[in-house]
Design a protein around this nucleic acid. Structure first.
Lengths: 208, 208
DNA sequence: AAAAATTCTAAACATATGTTAATGTTTTTA
DNA sequence: TAAAAACATTAACATATGTTTAGAATTTTT
């Protein structure tokens, strides 16, 4: 009895309950498509919560991704390691966003990315079976997929535009528009990496 | 009589007939989704062919895109002009591909890109009304939209990966994997621009 | 065919960015 | 709380890439 009570209390104080998380994911889905409560419940029943501690890996390279993560609380980064062994942070994902190596997930190929928690992070995992079930059984399943793909397309398009047409300094000055409060949530060397420059150089640019 | 005959002849010798072009677009669509012949015909009837000569602009910046282009024959490039007035070629599109400023098209915002023919180019224009009609009336309309968005997502993801993890030289050496025969179809300064470097520097890299 | 425009290369020099190493600070771990 | 690890800054130097200018080759236009 005491143990059970303590466990519940801990959950209450430090994290969100299973129900709260599912509600958050449900809200994200309902903001994109219309679907019945039974359908929503059926979809959510195929998903499950998962916690990660800071620096823990959600998704390793070299493996076919089996799920898409929905971030309830926390922040993660997506990393690629080049031929010389250097790490590049190519993306951050915050609360209420979906994250995965989508390309590898869709193509059923081995992932080239590492997805890693920067803070202790609470997620809901949507396994491939849940996604497939959604495409097959939800009236607006393809529309949901289309909207998510379009959302990330627009994000990437904007990124590519910035990489070509703006300097690292200019990109640094507007990074918080895309990732709110990022300066308090990610170390500067990860931000530098995202900008495509070294931490030493970012430090130099800031001094100007 | 003579004029009409000459016109027909010219079309036969130098380009594809309206029917041939529509068949080509129909083939591209059918490779992605299943749909009935009447639906296909109804969709195609909302599209129309359009030719462009080398250097002619398909889609100007500052204007909300009203259509998506399907390239039957030829090649186009997508250009952005930065704050200093410098042009950056950020994309090429070849035969059997769809091209537009998708972000601006989807968001109904003014385009930031110029889309310009590099060779004389034959297209089929899919006006916004046709696309909207497709989403509303085709059973697999959303699926078509999802597949196109996913295709370009994968393309962009690969690009971003390359920009971070590979050098301009390495990217130069593999550009023909993505754009077959590009070295014979685009001048080197456009390729250099796509790689994110100056033509002078590309010339230098080639010498090594 | 001649003229004009475009394209590629080359060299010299300028600038931006990377590398290494040292130091002090902050954060995490034990 | 002490030790260890991670982080940010700075300086000195190295390298990659940009800029300007010029000339030759190629393509396009007249």
């Amino acid at each position: 009895m005491r143990l059970r009570y303590k466990a519940l209390n801990l959950l209450y104080l430090t994290g969100k309950t299973v129900t709260q998380r599912m509600v958050q994911l449900a809200h994200a889905i309902k903001s994109m498509i219309t679907l019945s409560e039974p359908d929503l419940t059926a979809f959510l029943s195929r998903c499950h919560p998962q916690n990660y501690t800071k620096k823990q890996v959600l998704s390793p390279p070299g493996q076919i991704p089996g799920e898409i993560f929905f971030i309830v609380k926390g922040i993660v980064r997506v990393v690629i390691v080049d031929a010389k062994g250097n790490e590049h942070t190519i993306h951050f994902a915050l609360e209420n966003q979906f994250i995965a190596d989508y390309s590898a997930f869709m193509l059923k190929q081995k992932s080239t990315y590492t997805i890693e928690a920067i803070e202790d992070t609470e997620t809901v995992i949507m396994p491939r079976a849940a996604i497939d079930w959604g495409y097959t059984n939800l009236t607006q399943g393809d529309k949901l997929g289309r909207l998510i793909a379009e959302f990330y397309f627009i994000y990437q398009d904007n990124r590519i535009k910035n990489l070509y047409a703006r300097t690292p300094k200019q990109r640094y000055e507007s990074i918080a528009d895309v990732f709110p409060n990022i300066h308090n949530r990610a170390p500067q060397h990860m931000i530098a990496s995202y900008l495509g420059i070294t931490p030493v150089h970012l430090s130099r640019l800031k001094k100007q």
